[in-house]
Amino acid sequence: MQDMFNAQQAQNYIDRINNLTPFSTGNWGKMTVDQMLAHCNVTYEMVYEPQKHKAPGGIAKFILKTFVKAKVVGEKSYPKNSPTSPQFIVTKPQDFILEKKRLIGFIQKTQQMGREAFDGKESFSFGKLKAQEWNNMFAKHLNHHLEQFGV
């Protein structure tokens, strides 16, 4: 698993994103490339723009922490066509250039803030996470979708 807090490794993700074009097609799934970029931005919005999303209620958060957290923050890759939370579903066309810029900006901001800023930081859905759990969540989600689009 690459380290999103390491400048060179974060740049690897940015380089892969820069290899996408508005005409890139997925090897699986239903999303277009612009929708995928917007979908990947949701993870970062929940950190940097939480007002855009409704926080899960007590029962939902308990279920997420108990049954979903380990799959999201662990090191095992997501299988193709994995189910996603309704907050992450993007069905309308998006602005490819805008979503790409936003995603790169979020990656850069995360890397620059560093591991220490995320150690013990409260997650929107899973409670406090260790820096490595944040890293795993960011890295494997991006990797999953970049592989989906062949970069």
Rank of each mutant, 00 (worst) to 15 (best):
H53S: 00
K52P: 01
I59Q: 06
Q111F: 07
W28Y: 15
G114Y: 09
Q2C: 03
D95L: 05
E75H: 13
F96C: 03
K92H: 09
K128V: 03
G114E: 01
M31D: 04
M4V: 13
V68T: 13
T21L: 06
N41E: 10
T91I: 08
Q11K: 14
K30F: 12
F118N: 03
T32Y: 09
L98K: 15
A10R: 13
M36D: 00
P86G: 07
I17D: 01
E122T: 12
N6I: 02
V47D: 00
Q8I: 00
T84R: 13
K80G: 03
I89H: 10
K52G: 00
N19G: 12
Q108Y: 05
M1E: 08
L37E: 06
L103K: 05
Q94D: 05
F67H: 12
Q35V: 07
T91G: 05
A55Y: 09
R16S: 11
T32H: 11
E49P: 04
H39P: 03
K65A: 05
F126K: 09
K109Q: 13
D95G: 05
P86W: 01
M113S: 06
Q87M: 09
T84C: 13
G74W: 12
V90N: 05
L98Y: 14
Q94F: 05
Q108A: 04
Y13D: 04
G105C: 07
M31V: 12
K121C: 04
H39N: 02
G26C: 09
Y44W: 08
W28L: 08
R16V: 02
A55I: 02
V73G: 02
V33N: 00
W28S: 08
S123P: 08
I14K: 13
I104M: 07
V47T: 12
F124C: 00
V68P: 04
Q35G: 03
G58C: 07
K92I: 12
P86E: 03
F62Q: 14
T43S: 13
Q108V: 02
K71G: 12
V73K: 08
M31W: 08
N19W: 00
P93M: 10
S123A: 07
Q8A: 10
H39S: 04
V72M: 15
V42W: 04
L37N: 04
T91F: 03
I59F: 15
M46F: 01
K100N: 04
G105K: 00
T21D: 06
V90Y: 02
F106M: 08
P79V: 08
E49W: 03
L20I: 06
K128L: 04
F126S: 01
Q87Y: 03
E99T: 04
K92F: 08
K69F: 11
D34G: 13
T32W: 01
T43D: 06
L20F: 15
V90R: 15
A70E: 10
K109I: 00
